[in-house]
Design a protein around this nucleic acid. Structure first.
Length: 825
RNA sequence: GCGAAAGUGGCGGAACUGGUAUACGCGCUAGACUUAGGAUCUAGUCCCGAGAGAUCGGGUUGGGGGUUCGAGUCCCCCCUUUCGCACCA
């Protein structure tokens, strides 16, 4: 019967010890050298964490331990993104107050982290739902309000008539309210915004500096910002003595604009349809379009619908009068909410023109430009092709043509260059309780008045009612709503909207540095010393929203003169998801509670230990890629740790002297080199593989008694040290049992001696004409001449040469030699 | 449709800047120890062919072409998959 180690006892022992010696907390003010790493800010959701969630925490902890053993000052803080919708839903469904629910979840999550053996510096702990934290959201809001970066305006929102509340886009499922199934309508409400569009160019340009970010995330952000350069062109509407401006990136197709399309919401619409015989019909159609949720309206499957206003505009290039239409596919918020329709060169305009029987006119001939000739034939036949119209001057296509057009339009006073963005201002107000109250009050006399800094924080009242109906519970709290105007002292009402939780997470990394500071949002001196964050680990789901908002707020704080940096996160790592077969769907899917394919860490830890889970999670595959969880393969990680454990008992069996010492020593150093390199590149899976190899070598040496006791012990110690970031508990225990009194975590990473990697005799691969034919052993110092002589002495090589002459020999030192025979000319 | 990444054994995956393809693990096969084992250990395990045999020959990184003494890796074309964007004018 072989001994197996009691992982439960070992893990409990070290988890207790780590908890007690929290002294490892970094003294930020006195730490010399900087290595500020690993940012996380999880949401305490109440669902038990599963092994899929464990991946990024385990990854981060392994990295943290590795850095620390390498003498780096690493900071590993943890805090809670504690506001959010699930807490409020829990209150509605189960009658638990969001605060109590959240704090309970935090406790559970902390216990799970402890059981994974994860070392967080809890002295830096923050939670966004505490007034000590969110008062600085309010402070930031007031500063942004002063600078015009926060503002209020009417905006269309998703409104559930039954719940009487605003819904986030994510809460609208197929056009209906996620909770009650009532069709959602579009409604205009006064909303608070942050002017992120002012920063569009800087957010875009900043990406080029972020070399430590995955290209994928940068591309996603670039698409989201969606900068496009184009032109604004004015079209006169003679009947109204007005003009309408369109935005286009293709001014060179202006001659082909045969009609114009406005968003139904366009400000000129009422005047354009004023004299229309079916005005009422059009107005009711407009209402339908307005009530369509935005997501549905801008889906490609949605059929194009339009109405002719009966009014006309003048195409400045041709002088022709063209009809003005309204259509659902033109969005009011992009560009100027109006387009010149060029059906010959735009797929959407073409579809619409065909549907409504509007004229199609070619500007470019199919031979000039990428136009589908088949679809264009009818246009050519009916309208002909406009070429050599000014300012073509016979030239065709390309950016130069467009450039000339812009100049020409400008000269004629018809238009000018303009940049349009897809990015919209950030809507930060939520009609919800569980969030940061927006610090303004409304006074009948003074209007909207910001809350003075001295009266911050505006605290959330605890005693409110959660009915799930009638919208925001905050607005029914008299205690909260009724207040005094800071200006005149008269009666006033508080703003009851709260902030989007992304505001909380957009600056938390700065608060980690001085979490209890009562006087400031953060300490600029510490921020300048420790920022930017060296390593950020998180899921790809944050690629746009959170990471864009955090970059934006960082730039805002920079402009306020509070921090020197403009980019908060230097290196970003996106771990891949863990997948598993789901009985429900019969497919391999992302591990999640709703799919019923989760693996509980509790049971796994009970059965095989946290170290096993950690090693397997890291070994499963490249951490940036998706990986499929295999219940069987976990056992392999467990066997590996058991093997390492058993070797401790066998060390004394090794002989005092033995022949293969040098070989084991070389393996040891090769492993140090490989593991160190692997961990530097986040390649945890190959690091574990290398350690398994070293373990196999040592095991064999012990079995066959080919290495001395001292050598075996030294190899074992190195193995344990290198394994520590992945399997911290069992390695600490083994280290202690080896007689070391200092904690393994405090020991320093094994040193690589490159001279030990060298061999005296090396195996060289011999190729003849690029094909592997033999291996020869030569002195490591042998020069080409000697190698050649040794190789030619091989009977196998001679056989394959078959008497042919060696025309050329390519020697790759230490690896191979390729003998090239002359090829038939 | 546009953009990005990737295609290697039965499976997860190795191969750093072109240099022994399939490391490591899972699974599988045979054996050992055992009352028994999903425990442990030993040997084997890319495919085809020859041989009793250690071995020997040939082929193989989605398909096709190219560069090179040499290509999983670089270049071109095609196929497939995954992800992101998608009425943005």
């Amino acid at each position: 019967m072989s001994t197996s180690y009691d992982h439960k006892a070992v893990e409990a022992k070290w988890q207790d010890r780590w908890e007690k010696q929290r002294a490892a907390e970094v003294d930020l003010r006195h730490a010399r050298g900087k290595y500020y790493m690993l940012m996380m800010f999880p949401y305490p959701s109440g669902d038990r964490l599963h092994v899929g969630h464990g991946r990024n925490y385990i990854l981060g902890d392994a990295l943290y331990r590795f850095l620390r053993m390498n003498g780096k000052r690493a900071l590993n803080p943890m805090g809670w993104d504690a506001f959010g919708l699930p807490a409020e839903n829990a209150a509605i469904q189960r009658g638990i107050h969001p605060k109590d629910w959240t704090l309970g979840n935090i406790k559970v999550m902390k216990e799970q982290f402890r059981r994974w053996g994860i070392l967080y510096d809890w002295s830096k702990e923050i939670a966004s739902c505490f007034p000590e934290y969110y008062r600085w959201n309010q402070w930031l809001f007031l500063r942004m309000l002063e600078k015009g970066l926060a503002y209020k305006k009417m905006a269309p929102v998703n409104w559930c008539p039954s719940c009487r509340t605003v819904l986030a886009n994510e809460q609208v499922v197929e056009g209906a309210c996620e909770r009650c199934g009532t069709p959602v309508v579009q409604r205009d409400l006064e909303q608070w915004f942050f002017r992120i569009t002012d920063y569009a160019d800087r957010l875009l340009d900043g990406l080029d500096q972020l070399e430590g970010w995955p290209e994928k995330v940068k591309v996603m952000q670039r698409n989201w910002i969606g900068r496009s350069e184009g032109v604004e062109i004015r079209f006169e509407i003679p009947a109204l003595s007005e003009s309408v401006t369109v935005f286009t990136t293709r001014p060179d197709t202006l001659h082909g604009a045969t009609f114009m399309v406005l968003a139904p919401e366009h400000p000129l619409t009422p005047r354009l349809i004023a004299k229309h015989p079916d005005r009422a019909g059009i107005e009711s159609w407009i209402e339908t379009v307005r009530n369509t949720p935005r997501i549905q309206r801008s889906a490609e499957e949605t059929p194009k619908e339009g109405r002719d206003t009966g009014s006309v505009a003048v195409n400045p290039a041709t002088g022709e009068e063209i009809p003005i239409w309204l259509a659902n596919y033109v969005l009011p918020e992009y560009g100027s909410g109006a387009v010149m329709a060029v059906p010959a060169h735009d797929a959407r305009d073409l579809a619409f023109a065909r549907q409504e029987g509007l004229p199609i006119r070619l500007v470019y001939h199919p031979e000039d430009r990428n136009v589908d000739p088949a679809t264009m034939t009818e246009a050519i036949l009916h309208e002909g092709v406009i070429r050599n119209a000014p300012p073509f001057d016979g030239a065709v296509d390309g950016p130069e043509t467009i450039g000339r057009f812009i100049e020409w339009l400008q000269k004629n006073g018809w238009g000018q260059g303009k940049v349009a963005y897809r990015l919209r201002d950030w809507l930060i107000s939520r009609q919800r309780y569980w969030g940061t109250p927006i610090p303004v009050v409304y006074c009948d006399k003074d209007g909207m008045v910001p809350v003075p800094d001295g009266q911050l924080p505006v605290e959330l009242p605890y005693n409110v009612e959660f009915t799930g109906r009638e919208g925001n519970p905050l607005s029914r709290s008299k205690e909260f709503v009724e207040t005094k105007c800071p200006k005149c002292g008269g009666p006033a009402r508080r703003e009851t909207d709260t902030m989007d939780t992304f505001v909380d997470s957009s600056w938390y990394y700065l608060r980690y540095l001085s979490p209890r500071d009562p006087a400031r949002m953060f300490d600029p001196e510490l921020a300048n010393h420790w920022m930017p964050v060296d390593q950020y680990i998180g899921g790809i789901e944050h690629a746009i929203l959170h990471l864009l908002y955090a970059r934006f707020i960082c730039k805002v704080l920079h402009d306020f003169g509070l921090v020197g940096i403009e980019e908060p996160f230097q290196n970003l790592f996106n771990q891949g998801m863990i997948t598993r077969y789901s009985e429900k769907s019969g497919r391999i899917e992302k591990m999640s509670k709703s799919r019923g394919n989760t693996v509980s860490p509790d049971e796994l830890i009970e059965e095989m230990g946290a170290d096993t889970e950690r090693v397997y999670t890291l070994f499963i595959g490249p951490p940036e890629k998706e990986a499929e969880w295999s219940d069987e393969a976990v056992a392999g990680a467990h066997r590996f740790l058991q093997r390492v454990w058993r070797m401790l008992e066998r060390l004394p069996e090794a002989p005092p002297t033995a022949p293969a010492d040098a070989e084991l020593e070389r393996d040891r150093h090769a492993t140090i080199q490989r593991v160190t390199h692997s961990l530097q590149r986040f390649s945890f899976n190959t690091a574990v593989a290398s350690l398994m190899e070293l373990s196999n070598s040592l095991f064999r040496a012990l079995e066959e008694k080919t290495a001395s006791r001292l050598r075996c012990e030294e190899t074992f110690d190195t193995l344990v040290q290198l394994l520590h970031p992945m399997a911290p508990h069992v390695t600490e225990e083994l280290w202690e049992r080896r007689g070391y009194t200092e904690s393994l975590l405090e020991s320093s990473w094994p040193e690589l001696d490159e001279s030990k990697l060298r061999r005296e005799r090396i195996h060289l691969v011999v190729q003849v004409d690029g094909k592997l034919r033999d291996r020869v052993e030569v002195d490591a110092s042998a020069d080409e001449k000697e190698v050649r002589a040794a190789v030619l002495a091989s009977p196998k090589v001679q056989e394959h040469l078959g008497g042919r002459e060696v025309a050329k020999a390519v020697l790759v030192p230490g690896r191979l030699i390729n003998l090239v025979t002359r090829k038939s000319a």
